[in-house]
Each structure stands twice: as structure tokens, then as C-alpha cells.
Amino acid sequence: MQLVNADLAKKADVAVPQHSWDRHHYEAMLPGFGGSDSMDWRAFVDLLTKKGFDGPFEIENEAKNSKETANLAAISQGYVAAISFLKPMLWDISDKEGYAFANHQPLSQPGRADVPVVAVKDLL
């Protein structure tokens, strides 16, 4: 977090961080999709693995060159690029598919009953 003199920032019309989590120097970016990502993804994945993490990884897309374009093709390309970039770090290699997600289990269906259909007039 950079300390900014509020008076000088106001004179220069520069935004001043309002919270400790403000990161004016940061641009959201998908791993492996354009730009220069300063995140060391290999070190990140290695540390999580070392600590025993074996859960899912979630990719949130806030990237200017993907989500912020509002172009579905660019958004899809961003996700495909990020997944391709991360595959060798996250998944085992197979003879047939290369790096592939193989640790999946079928979703279990919870025990539930159908909700009865009721007309609005019968709700009153």
C-alpha cells in the first residue's frame, strides 16, 4: 500500500486509496491471457499443494481484455487460455488426452421430493 499525500493527490487530480485493500497499481488479468501477469502461478499452486490443498480452483474473470470487453468470444477465449495455462500445474498427464482433469466424481443427487404444483388462487 502506497502512502499518498492527500493534498498533493487532490491538486494532481489523482485518486487516493480509500481502504487498505485498494490496489491502484493492479490490473485484473486471467492467467496466460495477454498482458504481463505479475503473479507467480507455479509458486502459488506449489504452495497450495504443499499445504495439502486438494479442492477446486475458481477462476474469477475481471480482466479488461476479456470480461470488460462484453464480447462473449473474448470472454470465452480468456477462460480457455487460463485453463490451458494452468493445466500442467493442476492436472496429471495422460497418454490419450495430455493434461486432463481426472479427479472428478459424479454429482450426488440429494434426497428430495417434488414440489407440488399449486395454482395461485389456491395459495390464498
Rank of each mutant, 00 (worst) to 15 (best):
S66N: 03
E62V: 03
V120A: 02
L124R: 09
V14W: 14
L124F: 05
S84H: 13
D92Y: 10
I83R: 14
P116H: 07
N71D: 15
S108N: 15
E27V: 12
K96E: 13
H19C: 14
A9V: 07
D46M: 04
Y99I: 12
N65D: 15
P106Y: 02
K11V: 00
S20M: 13
Q18Y: 03
D46I: 01
S36C: 06
A28P: 03
Y26L: 08
E58C: 04
I59F: 08
A63S: 11
M1N: 08
V118Q: 04
A73L: 08
Q2T: 08
K87F: 06
A9S: 11
S108E: 15
V14D: 13
A73P: 02
N5Y: 14
E97L: 03
M29T: 09
K64W: 13
S108F: 04
K96F: 03
L86E: 06
H25P: 02
E58R: 06
I75H: 09
N103F: 11
A63I: 05
V115L: 05
H104R: 14
D95Q: 07
F101P: 07
V4I: 15
L72D: 12
K87M: 09
K10R: 15
K64S: 08
D92F: 02
G32E: 07
V16Q: 10
P88L: 07
D37V: 00
A81L: 03
H19Y: 14
L48E: 07
L47G: 04
S76E: 10
Y79I: 11
D54Y: 10
F44W: 06
V14C: 13
G111W: 01
G98P: 13
R112Y: 06
P106D: 14
K87T: 09
H24I: 09
D22E: 15
